[in-house]
Design a protein around this nucleic acid. Sequence first.
DNA 1: CGTAGGTTTGACTGATCTCAAGTTTGGTGG
DNA 2: CCACCAAACTTGAGATCAGTCAAACCTACG
Lengths: 241, 241
Amino acid sequence: MIATEAFAPLIRKLRRLTDLAEADCHAIRSLPFSIMSYAPRGYIVREDEAVGYCRGLVDGFACRHKVVADGGRQIVAIHIPGDFVDLQHLYLNTADHNVVSLTPTTLVCIAVAPLRELVRQRPNIARALWRDTLIDASISREWIANIGRRSACERVAHLLCELIARCEAAGLVSPDGLKFPLTQQEIADATGLTPVYVNRMLRCLRDADLIVQRHGSFRILDWQRVRDFAGFNTRYLHQGV
Amino acid sequence: MIATEAFAPLIRKLRRLTDLAEADCHAIRSLPFSIMSYAPRGYIVREDEAVGYCRGLVDGFACRHKVVADGGRQIVAIHIPGDFVDLQHLYLNTADHNVVSLTPTTLVCIAVAPLRELVRQRPNIARALWRDTLIDASISREWIANIGRRSACERVAHLLCELIARCEAAGLVSPDGLKFPLTQQEIADATGLTPVYVNRMLRCLRDADLIVQRHGSFRILDWQRVRDFAGFNTRYLHQGV
DNA sequence: CGTAGGTTTGACTGATCTCAAGTTTGGTGG
DNA sequence: CCACCAAACTTGAGATCAGTCAAACCTACG
């Protein structure tokens, strides 16, 4: 895969976050990189591992998760093409959580050293990447509020709202809804619920005519109503510049 | 208040996170700043507000919180002296959550423009601050796992472990335990529980001889046992360099 | 056509919340 | 030093939300 292709989704996202000159984009494309592919449920990073790369998602979906003492799994973030899955390794050298592919994925892998050098040379890129990590953190905070303070049904609806809003911003939503292959188990792991209960909550959202599901794709029927129901507001995604 | 004093806690923390030359510290101390004081429960930042400063906590405790539709409040982070309470405003211009003092607090307030300039001039400072934001994000992820996947009692214990570990690293723990004036209401808001249930969980921790409470100070009797019980591991705090 | 993984449903259990009433604590003014 | 007050803490009883277990049912795919 050539650099233009490999970096395209990342650059597209960064340009949405800040002004990036063509020279900056060129500098990114000139980074040494490698391409990695994973089958679904492949471990991209394991907790406690020393990591000397940062990886960006070119294609497919991935998530970060933590495993607690009793074996329960909590997904702490979900990533779509254009997201970095572990930009934190730019300045943290051991992983504090796992990163796993949800679907077949392709990633660009950049070594930390040249990325640090790039960031030093080009303040605009530093700002773009830093901003990206800050938005990631903002999303984490919203997840804390979602899991801590909303009812099961609202939680599920909020997660779907967020994923659809992010996919839309990234230009990934087809007219017939979001093709997002999340199992109910994964929704449960992301919302702090059990799969059985997620199933009931999805039915409840369907019964209320808030969403439509068909073979792995969700569609929101009336944004305004779903947003109100879930208490969703795009503010925390900081999508504008 | 003079610069040396105002910046001391922040610099102490940053030096724990990375190597910082004396020249770097001096550059920080040369930043234009102002000092702000708040009574307990004073709003330092309000959600949706445009913010052109970053503030660091010199003295006292503060938290960040979000309010959900039904009026419920979720604390998404707790800050101790030496922490920045809103470093995200370096590159995000509107607040996505509130910041509130828990006790009487003193903050250093630095305008974004000179801070960006400093970060551009001094890569070591950029690294230190960036690392700080990354650790903040790591803590948020652990909170997601804590609230999403641990039982009420473990959650409370985990929160106490984290606060004690962080205060210890910052040199704030006196021999007779942590003087940390959190009300049960605040513990509830931070763990996604209700105050009544937090009360019962604290009793349960006391009955199990895991903690001792007296007038607003907590003490952990047997670290090993409490850590095991709460599933607490300092890894996510990235306290080493 | 068989299999595996994912989904759906029902009945039951248990953790956490709610409401409501005390009780303790710390601070303040007389 | 005491009386008082507000805020925080404590406890009990009952309600509810979400979890557990177990079985049946799809659906995609080899």
